[in-house]
Amino acid sequence: MIIHHPILGPRDSAEFTYLGDANLIHRPDWQAEDALAQFTDYGYQRKNPAGVHRELWFHEQGDRSWLVVTRNTVTHEITKVELARDVARAEGRDT
């Protein structure tokens, strides 16, 4: 596969390592009343869709950026690639 790195352009997916669902960005608040339940969901519940999926890739043999790649798991079509750090900030990670 080819991943269009937002800074470096098209790169072979072989340069990346894969983590999984981009919802891992949304780590729960440890002080929430139901923190244990939230962390359990966070750690173990995945939608695993046959279709469009937002997922985390690490450019290990490249610039060491974590990316959020929007990819169709059926066709492998990639429709969007963003720096995970930008996504995390935009989606409210505030520390």
């Binding site: 960005i25 974590w66 995390a88 990670r93």
Partner: peptide, 18 residues
Amino acid sequence: VPVYRHMEFVRQCLFPNM
């Protein structure tokens, strides 16, 4: 290698404003 990758994950994805 995996620890470095993990630390970058924590830095970039979980605490991007540190």
